[in-house]
Computed example of a mutant assay.
Amino acid sequence: MKTHHQPKHLKTQLFSCGFFRHCTQTVLSPTGATLHSPPLPLSHTPPPPQPPRDQCESSTSSASSSSSTTSQSFTQWRFSLPSHSPTPNNNTLTFTPTPTPTIQTQPDPIPNLEELFHVSELQLSSGSEPDKTAALHLLERSLVPNPPQHQPPCPPNLMRHVITNLRSPTGAKLSTKILFALCLSESNRRVAVESGAAGAVVESVTEFDGAPAGRALAALELMCTVAEGAEEVRAHALTVPVMVTMMGKTGARGKEYAIGVLAVIYGGMAAGRQTAPPEEVARAVELALQEECSERGRRKGAQLLKTLQQLSETEP
């Protein structure tokens, strides 16, 4: 059958191909003399050029060449140098210094607050994200280290930009610093309240943790020292539940500021106007005082508990 002779024919074809003929010729020659196997094409490398006498001599063996290449690769990986091939005329290992990355420096603070407010307002109004970020950094570096107690009034438009960035993932942390620093001035507390800062803090503070949460609550308590700010905080439906939540998730300072805001709310609120029963708020305050809390926070808490008890007794 044809299928019976097919393997033999296939074997004949394989052994007659150039690949197997090359392999058999490397073992035996027609004259019976043993021939040396020709080097494989990939292992053939031209002899390296001779370096000058004052340079290190390079090995001509393939093992030394491999060792040199491995050493060079390891050194480059360790020092984060860009990979490069040695020049044909020089086998000396040389390193190209990595370019120093450009570091964006923070803007220099502007001591003149009127000029600071003007420059920052222009940058925040430009619409460019880099300009907005630069303006927030400028305000932070100029106001936060040593906030002046007597500041010129902050332009309302600039205050609104700061408040808007309370809800920005990239600008929230800086905005809490700036808002707190601005509210240290009584004139700016009124500007903040009129610009909607009190409501913005109440609606966004639960998204903050740690120091940003404490600064936002501190700014809110300062705004409550203005009659309009206290009234706005009392009228906001979320203020009491948010302050109760923040008492349970913040540190000693955060608890103090949240208790202070609750004291403002219930201290000036008539019976029947509460957004939450005084008994429930009192239990939350008692729990907060059992945890870490500042001494001033404990004093505020004790006074708040008395107020809440009086409101509970006067309820119909």
Rank of each mutant, 00 (worst) to 15 (best):
S59K: 03
T45N: 06
A63D: 13
H44G: 04
P39A: 13
P46Y: 00
Q50V: 14
L42Q: 10
T60Y: 01
L40A: 13
T45I: 12
Q55L: 12
S61C: 15
P46V: 07
S67A: 15
S66Y: 07
Q55V: 02
P41I: 04
Q50W: 05
D54H: 15
P48A: 09
L40H: 08
P47Y: 07
P52A: 13
P49C: 07
T45K: 01
R53S: 12
T45A: 13
P39D: 03
P41Q: 03
S62Q: 13
S66P: 03
H44W: 12
T45Q: 15
S66N: 09
L40T: 00
S65P: 03
S65I: 07
P49S: 09
S58G: 08
R53M: 11
P46G: 05
S67I: 13
T60M: 11
P51L: 09
S64P: 03
S59E: 12
C56Y: 04
P48N: 06
S58D: 07
S65A: 15
T60D: 14
C56G: 01
P48G: 10
L40R: 01
S43L: 13
Q50A: 08
L42I: 02
S65H: 12
P46F: 10
S37D: 12
Q50P: 04
P41R: 06
P47S: 14
L42G: 00
S67F: 11
S43Q: 11
S58A: 14
S66L: 14
S64L: 11
S37C: 07
P47W: 08
T45R: 06
A63P: 00
P49K: 09
T60G: 14
P38A: 05
P48I: 02
C56V: 04
P39C: 10
S62W: 03
C56A: 08
P46I: 09
S59F: 00
S67M: 09
A63V: 13
P52K: 11
S61K: 02
P47L: 14
S65F: 09
S58H: 10
P51S: 07
P39K: 09
S64V: 00
C56P: 10
P47E: 08
S58I: 10
S67K: 11
C56F: 06
S43A: 12
E57I: 12
S61R: 08
Q50N: 12
L40Q: 04
Q55D: 13
Q50G: 02
Q50M: 07
Q50Y: 06
S64R: 10
P47C: 02
P47M: 11
S66W: 06
S59I: 01
S61P: 02
S64A: 15
Q55F: 02
S65T: 08
S65L: 09
T60R: 01
R53H: 14
S66R: 00
P52R: 11
D54A: 05
R53V: 14
E57A: 15
D54F: 14
R53A: 15
A63R: 12
S58M: 08
Q55A: 12
P46L: 15
C56D: 11
P38W: 03
P41A: 12
P49Q: 14
P41T: 03
A63C: 05
P38F: 08
S65R: 04
S58N: 01
P46H: 02
P39E: 05
T60F: 11
T45E: 10
H44V: 15
A63H: 09
S65G: 05
T45Y: 06
P52G: 06
T45W: 02
H44F: 07
